[in-house]
Amino acid sequence: MSTEGVSQREFVNKFLTLATLNEPIISSSYQKPLQDVTTLGVALPALKYKYNPKRTRTTQQAGAEQLETSTPVSLTLKSIKAPRFAIEKEFVATDTILKVKNFLVQEAKANNASEVKLLLKGKVLHDSSILLDLKTEKAVITVMISAGTSAAKKDSVPVAEAPADPETPISEVSAVLTHLPWHEIEALLTNTYKDKDTSEIRALVERLKKGWEMTK
């Protein structure tokens, strides 16, 4: 068929008309048996790509870590001292130990986080640690709560001074302390130490007087 003097559009229309006049030899659902396939088509050049197994492992590890951080961690917070309690709470793996302590403060188990100490198998857990470091999805945490200084101040009751006897004037008390009955003291010592000489008893009383005067 000559295409001279025929536009491109007319050529396409005539070609499609001729192509649809006869039924296709191969149906649209035709499948060639695999054993009859001798070639896969034009051979493609080898792909110039250097395989890096470390990169694959790093990607897999990052995906695993992301999965771990989103995994919830169930904790049983158990106090072994009075007041005893056991609370089950679910946290996120990225939550810190300090957040767990603040939760106990919100539950009115302690006045502030500094009074709370958390232990796992006898090991103290630090505030900056995250629950992912526990390497478990369930754990029983031992809770120890110490009384804070503020609570101690609230519980302490000031001891009131004993009031003086209103019937005893202060002047009389001072007079009694200032003028001691030295003669009676000397007589008492004489009766007690009968084997001593009278001069020795008097010398002892004089020393007592001097010592008393020095304390004023």
Rank of each mutant, 00 (worst) to 15 (best):
T39Y: 05
G41W: 02
G41S: 01
P45E: 03
A46V: 08
A46H: 13
L47Y: 09
L47P: 00
K48S: 14
Y49R: 13
K50E: 08
N52M: 06
N52P: 06
P53G: 02
R55Q: 15
R55F: 12
T56A: 15
T56R: 13
T59A: 15
T59I: 13
A62N: 11
G63A: 15
A64C: 10
A64G: 01
A64M: 10
E65C: 06
E65T: 09
E65L: 15
E65M: 14
Q66P: 04
Q66F: 09
E68G: 08
T69K: 11
S70T: 12
S70V: 09
T71D: 00
P72G: 03
P72K: 07
V73H: 04
S74C: 14
L75N: 05
T76C: 13
T76W: 09
K78H: 09
S79L: 01
I80S: 14
A82I: 11
A82N: 12
P83Y: 04
R84M: 05
R84Y: 04
F85H: 06
A86P: 00
I87R: 09
I87E: 01
I87P: 02
E88D: 05
K89W: 02
T94E: 10
T94V: 08
T96I: 01
T96A: 03
L98S: 06
L98E: 12
V100R: 05
K101S: 05
N102Q: 15
F103R: 03
F103W: 03
Q106R: 06
E107F: 00
K109M: 05
K109W: 06
